[in-house]
Design a protein around this nucleic acid. Sequence first.
DNA 1: CCTGTTTTGTGAAATAAGTAACAAAAAACT
DNA 2: AGTTTTTTGTTACTTATTTCACAAAACAGG
Lengths: 210, 210
Amino acid sequence: MITNKSCIIRLSRYKNSLHRLRALGFVKVFSDNLADAIGVLPSQVRKDFSLFGISGNKRGGYQVDTLIEKLNTILGKEQTQEVIVAGLGNIGNALMKYKGFEKEGIKISACFDIDSAKYHRDAAIPILPLEEMKDFVRSKRIKIGVIAVPDIAAQSVLDMMLACGIKGVLNFAPLRLRAPEDVVVNNVNLELELENVIYFVNAQEKTKVG
Amino acid sequence: MITNKSCIIRLSRYKNSLHRLRALGFVKVFSDNLADAIGVLPSQVRKDFSLFGISGNKRGGYQVDTLIEKLNTILGKEQTQEVIVAGLGNIGNALMKYKGFEKEGIKISACFDIDSAKYHRDAAIPILPLEEMKDFVRSKRIKIGVIAVPDIAAQSVLDMMLACGIKGVLNFAPLRLRAPEDVVVNNVNLELELENVIYFVNAQEKTKVG
DNA sequence: CCTGTTTTGTGAAATAAGTAACAAAAAACT
DNA sequence: AGTTTTTTGTTACTTATTTCACAAAACAGG
């Protein structure tokens, strides 16, 4: 099992670029096309592929269709992935309306919230009470959850998800959650991402002056 | 200038943890408290601090207040950072309503969109036509922008921002944007983050079986 | 004031990640 | 058919990041 997160992220990027290239009429690509597209060196592309046993043709490059298929297999996208969302605040709402997931084979199957005013059982994406999470997740064998609840509730929602059998979580709450080793927690922290930009802009300014 | 992005991200995390620790009554902390809080080793904490010339007291640890101040200085947070947002779709909307920024000293000064139905000049955060970006950004000397527009528009919005003098961008569009070397572009791609979780969950499953 | 303990700060060692280089394969051209 | 060109796949090299280890400083207790 490859544990290098940035390598997996690159695979996703290759895949995205390949979709665009295919739309432009490309039937085969070379490592330097992909490298250009995502901003790395061609040798990085070949190395990444080599790690996952993806091979092309010497001088012939890679067949776009085959490559996309292989990447989808590696990334676990042969079938639609169902996920649940906890928390129907700003972020939860945006995620539910977000069009980007569907075309990537990701389906939000339900949203869970604590506020009964928000429940909407018959919506395209049903909004259910937290108490129903266990039944829902177990019956549908869902493995992936998104945490979009306020900080204070995040750990208890994670614990609830774990109890339901969820094995991977995307966490938007800006704190470190405790989970067993075999559970994947990926954090997205918007303040932090912005702070990062701010730091580098300031640092840039300083070096320019000094 | 330190160019190690993950190091800067850790600094932000230390700062966030320190706020929580302070709220709990901590006056001083040790490297292993912070290490625990963000999930790294104590030596990593000390090394990060050492890189930025942050020092504590041997045996006495670090004063929480002083440490927060130093981190804020490094992260460029002595004064409120103003940012603009382009695109009032799902993500743009969520960002504008999001409470997390304010307490981090980040202020969304305006939002720009192409759709005249959305304009709202007198709102707390004004929603303005894209054409007004240049005047607005220049008069307020804003350096940071957020791109939350559809893929196809992303590059042209970035170019517009660059022409306004924006020096750092947080990009939510799932493609690589071209920008000069001295401009910071930080990408947040939600599909990709989820795909990453999906990959590791699947990989976990496989190793368990095989 | 001395001894023992704790915790920092840093230079050295280990690990991980990225880059370069080149032989081998495949296609194109003559 | 042979030669040239192109592009992969992999090994070796380089750079970056993390972890270890320990001396030096600071405090506490007798």
